[in-house]
Design a protein around this nucleic acid. Structure first.
Lengths: 143, 143
DNA sequence: TAATAAATTTGTAATTATTACAAATTCGGA
DNA sequence: TCCGAATTTGTAATAATTACAAATTTATTA
C-alpha cells in the first residue's frame, strides 16, 4: 500500500506537480478504480478518508492533471465532466441502464475521416451507448 | 419560403407533433443551419423573429424532437447540449480554435469494438478535436 | 529548530445550463 | 363563437462548475 502511494507520488513529481496527499489520492482513485468517475464520485469517496477535503480541491487537482497530461476529460454526457487516466487509445461504452462506463479496445487510428483533408486532428473519441451484458442478463432473469 | 415552412410543418405532423410556429422555426433552424447549435444559439437567433419566444419553449421543443426521433443530442462538450437533425451516420469534428463543428463522412459500422460481445449497442458516436483548415490558414497569414 | 515566502487547500459566493411548475395564451373541434 | 386541451411563457429551483480570498501547509533559509 505504502509502495503504491509512493509510485503515484513519483508519477506526480515527474510531471512537476508536488505530491500532496489529496493529489496522490485523486490520482490513485483514477488509476485504481478506472470507472471514469465524475468529480462528485471522486469527492464523495475520498472525503471519507480525508475529512477536510473540499470539492474545489478535487476540481483544482483534476485541472492540474489535465494541464500536465496526467489525465484527460472524457465527454460522455453533457451535464458532467468525467476523467480518465488511461492514456492509450480506447473507446468508451456507456450503459443506458446502469450508467456504468466500459473501456473497449479499438484501432482508433484505422478510422478514416473523409472530408477533413488538411485539418489538424489532435484527439479522436469513440463513444457507444447501449445496454451492457450484465443489465441484459439481469433483465431476463426478472421476466 | 412558404413552401419550406410547409415542408417542416408536414414533417412535424408525420411525427405527431402539432406544427406550431415555434416548433416549425426550431426545426427549420436545425435543418437549415446545420451547425449543431446550442440551446442558447437557437434561442438568440429565433427570438429576433419571434419576440415572445422563451428559452423554456426551445428546451421543450427540442425535448419533443428527441422523443419522437426528429433530432438527437450531440455531446461535444460537457457543459452544454447540442442538437442535430441529420440522422444518417456521420462523425463530428470540433475546432478548438474557432469552436465550429464540422460533419464528416464515416463508415461508422466498420468500427469494430473488441470486448463488447453480447452488449446491445444502440448508438455510436465519433468525435474528433483539432484545428480546422480555416484556422490553420488564418494563423499562417498572421505570421 | 524557527521564521518566512510560496504553494496548496478550503469555503463561500457567483456563474451558467437545465429543469420544474403554475399561470397565461393559443389552438382545434363542436 | 365557445370550451377544453395543448402549448407557451416566466419565474424559481437545481446542479455542476468557476472565481476568489482567507486559512493552512509546505519547502527553504537562517
Amino acid at each position: 500500500m505504502r509502495n503504491l502511494s509512493r509510485e503515484f507520488a513519483e508519477r506526480l513529481q515527474r510531471s512537476n506537480i508536488r505530491p500532496t496527499y489529496p493529489r496522490i489520492k485523486v490520482l490513485e482513485y483514477l488509476a485504481v478504480k478506472m470507472t471514469h468517475p465524475t468529480v462528485d464520485e471522486i469527492y464523495s469517496c475520498l472525503v471519507k478518508e480525508i475529512p477536510t477535503l473540499s470539492k474545489t480541491t478535487v476540481y483544482n487537482t483534476l485541472k492540474n492533471f489535465v494541464d500536465v497530461g496526467l489525465a484527460k476529460i472524457v465527454v460522455i454526457e453533457e451535464n458532467e465532466m468525467r476523467y480518465d487516466v488511461i492514456m492509450h487509445k480506447h473507446g468508451h461504452f456507456k450503459c443506458e441502464s446502469c450508467g456504468a462506463i466500459y473501456d473497449f479496445a479499438l484501432d482508433i487510428e484505422a478510422i478514416q475521416a473523409e472530408g477533413l483533408a488538411h485539418f489538424k486532428i489532435k484527439e479522436k473519441n469513440v463513444l457507444f451507448y447501449g445496454i451492457c451484458l450484465h443489465c441484459i442478463t439481469t433483465e431476463q432473469e426478472e421476466n
